[in-house]
């Protein structure tokens, strides 16, 4: 029970800090919008091409804006010695990871929803299946992004050249997430594929479970002095 309330308090801290500064979400949203606008200049999609290209474009916009946000998840803690405070507090390291995982997922999911809005508006995307399946996909994919993104964000915050290291580590790591999410999305848009929507979402779930478990086990070593 204490463990859960510890997690909740770190999440609350992250959300309050974000609501006061609005720095991360604002940058993520603007970046997401800019990407979608650049895409719309770069690709002219008719309805047929849409099925093939839209899922990839959408998830590319998602991952890039997610990385932008993840970059500040831990590096912001190093300003004003916040990290020291966090480490000195009687909270287990794994609880810090889980809390950061959840708050990152919330921020990323929020920016994804707005990007999706822009995308549907500018590209006129139509889902042939139910919306709630896509929401499920977004949640699973976003948790996947943050599962590895949170631990890599903590790693890159400890290096010189922070901003470069995170995408270098994160992009190859999220390839399974990207493939599964893009394929499942194109199924929702009515494309015929060899594997079903269920198979791809199970793959996302497996990715999430594996990397959350591994990260919980490994996170304490990152903050080790």
């Amino acid at each position: 029970m204490i463990y859960i309330s510890q997690i909740v308090s770190v999440i609350r801290k992250d959300i309050i800090a974000e609501l006061r500064t609005k720095s991360t979400i604002g940058a993520m949203l603007l970046f997401g919008l800019t990407i979608v606008v650049v895409f719309s200049f770069s690709f002219n999609l008719d309805l047929q091409e849409q099925k093939n290209l839209a899922p990839g474009l959408l998830w590319t916009a998602f991952i890039f804006s997610a990385i932008l946000g993840l970059n500040y998840s831990f590096s912001s803690e190093y300003e004003n010695g916040c990290m020291q405070g966090l480490l000195l507090s009687p909270i287990p390291r794994s609880a810090i990871y889980i809390a950061k995982l959840i708050s990152n997922s919330i921020f990323i999911l929020f920016s994804e929803l707005v990007i999706l809005g822009f995308f549907v508006w500018l590209f006129d995307v139509r889902f042939t299946m139910n919306w709630h399946w896509f929401v499920l996909l977004m949640v699973l994919g976003t948790i996947g992004f943050s599962a590895t993104g949170t631990i890599f964000s903590a790693i890159s915050a400890e290096t010189r050249m922070k901003v470069f290291i995170l995408p270098l580590l994160q992009l190859p790591m999220t390839i399974p997430v990207m493939i599964a999410a893009v394929e499942a999305t194109s199924i929702l848009l009515g494309k015929e594929t060899k594997f079903t929507f269920d198979a791809w979402s199970t793959m996302l779930l497996v990715y999430d479970v594996i990397f959350i478990t591994l990260s919980v086990m490994l996170f304490e070593y990152i903050l080790e002095e």
């Binding site: 631990i151 790693i155 190859p172 390839i175 990397f211 490994l218 990152i222 080790e224």
Partner: peptide
């Protein structure tokens, strides 16, 4: 420490 963690996660991936 940091690269060991990446070595483990990367190989699993």
């Amino acid at each position: 420490y940091l690269s060991s963690v990446v070595g483990i996660i990367g190989f699993t991936n």
